[in-house]
Computed example of a mutant assay.
Amino acid sequence: MDATAAEGTVRVEVDLAGRSYDILIGDGLIASCGSEIARRMPSVRCAIVTDSNVAAAHLATLVESLERAGIESATITLDPGEKTKSFAALEAVVDGVLGARLERGDLVIALGGGVIGDLAGFAAGIVRRGMGFVQVPTSLLAQVDSSVGGKTGINTARGKNLVGLFHQPRLVVADTAALDTLPPREFRAGYAEVVKYGLIDRPDFFAWLEKDWRAVFTGGPARQRAIAESCRAKAEIVARDELETGERALLNLGHTFGHALEAATGYDGARLVHGEGVAVGMALAHRFSVRLNQCSADDAARVEAHLGEVGLPVRMADIPGSLPGAEQLLSYIAQDKKVLRGALTFILTRGIGRSYIARDVPASEVLSFIQENLPE
């Protein structure tokens, strides 16, 4: 599944037969992105999609790398934040790609966090009925989760990621040095997705994170190990279930509650960013599993303790501002993509590292649970 691509760089393969691709993980990789692209996809031109914050930190390095490799590029710069995952921003990206006169065989490069990756990947999937794209994730959340696996999309007023498609990248370049420019809150939010992989089916990984999380936050070998292990975990599941017809749904642990809370806050990043929603969602999923007699209270408390120790929110009361009532939150959950013919589906757990897909969860149970967990 993985090997060393160059000294200090880890390569993880996403094995999808004729559409397999590499995830490269290492320090300073944005500066070598042009040569990696040219080696795999010669004679392409590119449109770089980024946001203004990321552009200030990393765009010049990427453009110089492309120029050294003889790759022409145009840049499309958007506003930062979750609200950019919109129809309006999608139109702007599509217009920019077409305005650059890029052809079907050319590339879209997503330089940024999960918002940019999801949006740029969606645009690449629909322009000229499908162009190639490369993920250059600059946030921890994007490096360990959203840049891998081909899920792309935008949000609507009715819920998160409800419009999109599966469109696999041709390459993922995860420069761990880019994480040094992240605000601490954004890094913590991304760490929630790292924890998720331990809670799905890697209890030993979760135990290691409990012990060594400070080293992951500091950087160096522990951070690279955490990113690589997360990418391996996701790559293995995606290879077995690319289109989420079965076990890939496990990757949504914490997301059903989390997405509902994001919608409830109007995708206001000042109140709640995605990884924080996932953290609260994972804590809720474990407490809900306890309520259904599937998980021990000790395991749920252990999860909550670790998330809280690193500074992540674990309860709805930790979210600033007011939240809508239980019925409204349940309506957001009912818009979740895992709902099948109106039946609620959750990713629940029988303990740390023992997550499972629970189908036909009674709405009355969910409503009662939400009511009990709403802030007073």
Rank of each mutant, 00 (worst) to 15 (best):
residue 118 D to Y: 10
residue 354 R to W: 12
residue 258 G to S: 02
residue 158 R to H: 14
residue 244 E to K: 07
residue 309 E to Q: 14
residue 69 A to D: 09
residue 21 Y to F: 04
residue 198 G to T: 10
residue 128 R to C: 07
residue 307 L to K: 00
residue 345 T to K: 04
residue 331 S to W: 10
residue 280 V to H: 04
residue 357 I to C: 06
residue 68 R to W: 08
residue 292 L to M: 13
residue 107 L to R: 14
residue 230 S to I: 05
residue 161 N to V: 05
residue 342 G to P: 00
residue 274 H to S: 00
residue 132 G to Q: 12
residue 111 L to Y: 00
residue 327 E to M: 03
residue 199 L to G: 08
residue 190 G to L: 01
residue 16 L to W: 06
residue 204 D to N: 15
residue 140 L to E: 06
residue 58 H to R: 06
residue 229 E to R: 14
residue 375 P to I: 10
residue 158 R to N: 11
residue 265 T to H: 09
residue 364 S to P: 07
residue 238 V to L: 09
residue 268 D to L: 11
residue 157 A to M: 04
residue 209 L to G: 10
residue 301 A to R: 15
residue 268 D to T: 08
residue 305 A to G: 06
residue 335 Q to K: 11
residue 371 Q to D: 15
residue 181 T to G: 09
residue 38 A to T: 09
residue 234 K to Q: 12
residue 77 T to R: 11
residue 163 V to A: 12
residue 254 G to T: 11
residue 221 P to Y: 05
residue 19 R to V: 05
residue 363 A to F: 08
residue 136 V to E: 04
residue 165 L to Y: 03
residue 125 G to K: 02
residue 347 I to V: 15
residue 298 D to E: 14
residue 308 G to H: 06
residue 339 V to H: 06
residue 328 Q to W: 08
residue 351 G to T: 05
residue 320 P to S: 07
residue 248 R to Y: 07
residue 89 A to D: 10
residue 79 D to C: 05
residue 164 G to D: 02
residue 243 L to I: 07
residue 17 A to D: 11
residue 301 A to Q: 14
residue 142 A to Y: 01
residue 254 G to E: 08
residue 362 P to Y: 03
residue 230 S to D: 05
residue 34 G to R: 13
residue 53 N to W: 00
residue 164 G to Y: 08
residue 294 Q to I: 09
residue 319 I to D: 00
residue 151 K to R: 10
residue 276 E to M: 03
residue 171 L to M: 00
residue 323 L to I: 00
residue 344 L to R: 13
residue 334 A to N: 11
residue 114 G to M: 07
residue 269 G to E: 15
residue 370 I to E: 13
residue 171 L to K: 03
residue 334 A to F: 09
residue 360 D to R: 15
residue 118 D to H: 01
residue 236 E to M: 13
residue 333 I to E: 09
residue 18 G to K: 11
residue 39 R to T: 15
residue 254 G to I: 07
residue 217 F to C: 12
residue 246 G to P: 02
residue 11 R to P: 00
residue 336 D to Q: 04
residue 217 F to T: 11
residue 270 A to K: 14
residue 231 C to T: 04
residue 89 A to W: 03
residue 354 R to I: 12
residue 319 I to P: 06
residue 17 A to C: 12
residue 173 V to F: 07
residue 146 S to N: 11
residue 257 F to H: 02
residue 285 A to T: 04
residue 20 S to I: 03
residue 232 R to K: 14
residue 99 G to A: 07
residue 369 F to D: 12
residue 24 L to V: 04
residue 43 S to L: 12
residue 301 A to N: 11
residue 264 A to Y: 08
residue 304 E to L: 09
residue 150 G to D: 01
residue 320 P to I: 08
residue 153 G to N: 07
residue 18 G to D: 15
residue 206 F to Q: 10
residue 205 F to N: 03
residue 46 C to F: 02
residue 72 E to T: 15
residue 6 A to T: 06
residue 298 D to S: 15
residue 328 Q to K: 14
residue 243 L to V: 10
residue 140 L to K: 12
residue 295 C to G: 06
residue 77 T to E: 02
